[in-house]
Write a protein that binds this DNA or RNA. Structure first.
Lengths: 358, 358
DNA sequence: TTCGTTTTCGAAACCGGTTTCGGCAACTGT
DNA sequence: ACAGTTGCCGAAACCGGTTTCGAAAACGAA
């Protein structure tokens, strides 16, 4: 009922300011501010009275007015690097949803910017920090040696990695243990009787690509399988180069009976290469991949893959970064998640192998 | 050389403030502020001197400090509604890139939030406006009757629609004339000899869906074809429901020889339904669609579709909104774009028809 | 009762910019 | 030469919050 202006004219709804609230209560704005921010020198009685009045009048502080004194704008920064063929693009919406939801829960917001090169990314980070558009940053797609980390570390700006890095001193991070999933995939295939298991790695430079390669090797070791370098194809991220990588494996003199891909995008190409050679996926050739892109269920047969809950990852990252901005030590802000195996139709017993022991 | 501290300790790089700049110049901060903001009461000589010093010292105003007086935070708001099956999701990254790029060019930033329902969207708009996290909003996926428009209009908050709406009084907007593309598609098919052309519309409620339906009808009229209600399938947005819609058309007693889809997602399902019935796309059944999703090129045969330059659309929207926030009249901020036809393999001469007249 | 603590709040400075106002100096016109 | 403009800048208020400091009031102990 408060501002339902009786005048049919253009009524500027007139924000409720701190002083208005204070006047209404017969207090000074300093007192009201401290009451709302839970300072210990305010009596419980007054605190409660202030809270109720603030609620009733619908008082909401202007975040940039607070920022001028506190130095914190309550905003998470995200600089996305957009590539032509970006395997992670389908997950963008989910990722944003996770970030935004967790940020909103703490009354923070999300400031996003996009860049098309490493240099532009650093430029944006610079601009956003110096103009204080964000209190900290989420760094997706971490590289082993990441210029963004050096940059922010030097300026003492909080950040959280999505992924790990070589030198994690002072870094908070969240990551999915994709190396464990790849290792599990290889182990599973070995149990199914596969003796020659190929691998299509992800793009070099990114930490996750290295880790998944390690996972492949670990899986071979656990399955007591020899490591044949020929079974590691050139890196592939999307359908077209995935087909090329698969071709190099399938055209080997002694081709693999199973292929593990570091990313689903490449697996799409494996299907193409297999079809072209008359190989039936799931029987002639087993494929297990990683990511959980939506198209995976539409393939024939549906692709067995490890699905990442990208929305949940975003939520965790936002939470970690907010805590980091509030002063928590980076060493206490490190988490690992796991991808969930979606057993579908693209993997099976090795051709000519006996039923596996459970 | 300025702040390369000789001390190897943790050097807080100490921002350059307006007063610092003023002291350096022997001026007051008020004068410097006016010089940088091009006030007329500053001599050209002083203005130039200030600009150079600002450049040299690397002075960058704190945007939230400016905001407290000006009321403008230089940020565009974007509230995305995330659906389970969202046909527009693949374009998210491109859209953000366009917005971000155009915003950055004017030194604005982008604040994004996500919602999962209409009510939550309004909540977020409310929070972002009252806390002044954004100066205005971009409203994607406009509906014929859109609650967001009413909401923002009542509060006198600037906004720009991506799409049109029923009552566009006071609305700035950018839109692609998709109805023209659909009309062109139908016309093209008619010229190719198709007499029965089916249509798979988009989800009801959205303006674009209605417009594309109009475009279908207009195309029929231009091709002097009768409108058979049976040729309009149930709405579909994604592959699965697209297949169902296509089935209703293909199982007709007198099925169409061509199908136009309002969105590419549905066209994917049309391929499925056609394959299931042994129809060869491009010869037995022509398909033309709209959107330009990347998968379209990977289909067999590649899908003929009208491609929207989503990045460019984002850039235009950001530009319009910034101008709107700076006071331009909404009536002067309305633009239309066009999608580009990508003639690929999914459409051809009608079965049993003579070569068409040019 | 008296003195020292503690609790609780008011007053005012403060954050980093922008905007208003007034005054000095340099022009203009006669 | 003198009054009236005009150009240009300093001083100070201002935006809407937060934080510091000090003092009054309430409390506790002797």
């Amino acid at each position: 009922m408060q501002f339902c202006g009786d005048t049919p004219r253009s009524e500027p709804p007139k924000r409720v300011r701190l002083v208005d609230l204070a006047a209404q209560l017969g207090l000074t704005k300093g007192t009201v501010s401290r009451a709302l921010n839970d300072h210990p020198d305010i009596s419980d009685q007054t605190r409660l009275r202030v809270r109720k009045a603030a609620e009733k009048l619908g008082y909401r502080p202007l975040s940039h007015a607070q920022a001028i004194r506190t130095g914190r704008v309550q905003s998470l920064g995200l600089v996305l690097q957009i590539y032509e063929h970006d395997a992670h693009r389908p997950f963008m919406a989910e990722f944003l949803a996770g970030l935004s939801q967790a940020a909103s829960a703490e009354d923070w917001t999300l400031t996003v910017a996009t860049a098309s090169s490493d240099a532009q990314t650093l430029d944006l980070l610079d601009r956003l920090t110096v103009e204080k558009k964000a209190d900290g940053f989420i760094l997706p797609r971490t590289k082993l040696d990441d210029a963004r980390i050096e940059f922010l570390r030097a300026r003492n700006v909080p950040f959280v990695l999505y992924g790990r890095t070589r030198e994690s001193r002072g870094c908070a991070w969240f990551d999915i243990e994709s190396e464990r999933s790849i290792e599990d995939a290889v182990t599973l295939l070995a149990r199914l009787g596969h003796r020659r298991i190929g691998f299509v790695p992800g793009a070099q430079g990114y930490t996750y690509a290295e880790l998944r390669r390690d996972g492949y090797l670990a899986g071979l070791a656990r399955g007591a399988l020899a490591h044949d370098r020929q079974l590691v194809a050139p890196p592939a991220m999307a359908r077209d180069d995935g087909a090329i990588s698969a071709a190099t494996l399938l055209d080997l003199a002694d081709p693999p009976s199973a292929i593990v891909c570091a990313v689903d995008g490449a697996a799409l190409g494996v299907y193409d290469a297999a079809r072209q050679r008359g190989l039936k996926i799931g029987t002639d050739l087993s494929v297990i991949s990683y990511d959980g892109i939506p198209e995976a269920t539409l393939l024939d047969p549906p692709l067995s893959t490890y699905r990442v809950d990208t929305r949940a990852a975003g939520a965790r990252l936002a939470d970690l970064l907010i805590r980091r901005c509030r002063g928590a030590a980076p060493e206490d802000l490190r988490e690992l998640g796991r991808a969930a195996f979606q057993a579908r139709g693209s993997h099976g017993v090795a051709p000519g192998a006996a039923q596996p022991a459970t």
